[in-house]
Write a protein that binds this DNA or RNA. Structure first.
Lengths: 149, 149
DNA sequence: TATTGTTATACTCTATAACTATA
DNA sequence: TATAGTTATAGAGTATAACAATA
């Protein structure tokens, strides 16, 4: 593991340097996510989908699409797979019979809990930091995100 | 834009909190990245590839693969496209004739510079930080990344 | 024997466009 | 007409396995 430290940038381009490092952290996290998904015999997208659902306020297909940040046409096959594994059900609504609500089965709820548990942990790169570093990181990133609004 | 704030986490789960925030930053940047790539008539992956290269220390195909975090077999077609656009050249090395070094053409260097310029501004969330915060962020993330090795 | 890059293949994720059934 | 979901399709990204040339 190394290879792209040299993307650097002017010696004082602190923002660019920070971004490169953040990218590294993401790459390691993506790999972890794939491992978690594979361990549950799912694709990452299926994991994200199940993670997004809740039975307290059932989602429509289109809501799931926007939650995943993809086109609605993709959600059909995705939900097909979850449904064929007995994790969710499509249920037509009375109010508008075009809409389909997504309800998790018991198995779906249970699997979602397992996912939550495994995903709760931040990637190792972050967890390995000292408490002090984590606090500082939270504070800085809070300011970063806040600046977008 | 919303939808996964509910993954939250114990109040003192600093790592998890930092991770959520980092995710926010990343999401804002990913969308921008796609716009930049489309504006240059490239795919995001092609942009990442060109961004990773340097003529000061030319990369082998396998190095580019590890820099992109993908299997080496994918790099063949990727470099084919960059090469067909006259942005890079494969050059066999004398030391080990199995290895192919990737050299940017003049056009590649120029396009890379345009990419760098546009990407430097990319994560507004980060650029908006104070210099002090950027320095601290670099230091913390350096430790995070270093902890992976 | 091991490694670099290539090819073949297959699967996932993605968007666009056309369709259906409702509204 | 407009919208929710589906289908068909195509392109990009991904990994695995087998191969040639070279080490």
């Amino acid at each position: 593991m190394e290879a792209q430290a040299e993307v650097s940038t002017a010696p004082d381009d602190l923002g660019g340097r920070a971004w490169e490092l953040m990218f590294e952290v993401f790459k390691s996290a993506k790999a972890y996510m794939e491992v978690v998904a594979a361990g549950l015999d799912m694709t990452p997208q299926q994991v994200y989908a199940l993670k997004s659902l809740t039975n307290e306020r059932p989602m429509a297909m289109s809501e799931l699409a926007s939650s995943l940040g993809c086109d609605a046409s993709n959600v059909t096959a995705l939900v097909d797979k979850l449904e064929s594994r007995g994790l969710v059900e499509r249920r037509s609504t009375d109010r508008d019979r075009r809409v389909k609500s997504l309800i998790m089965t018991e198995a779906g709820v249970a699997l979602r809990a397992r996912i939550q548990e495994r995903m709760k942990k931040a990637p190792a790169a972050i967890e390995n930091l000292t408490s002090g570093d984590k606090v500082a990181l939270c504070e800085i990133l809070s300011r970063a995100v806040a600046s977008l609004e």
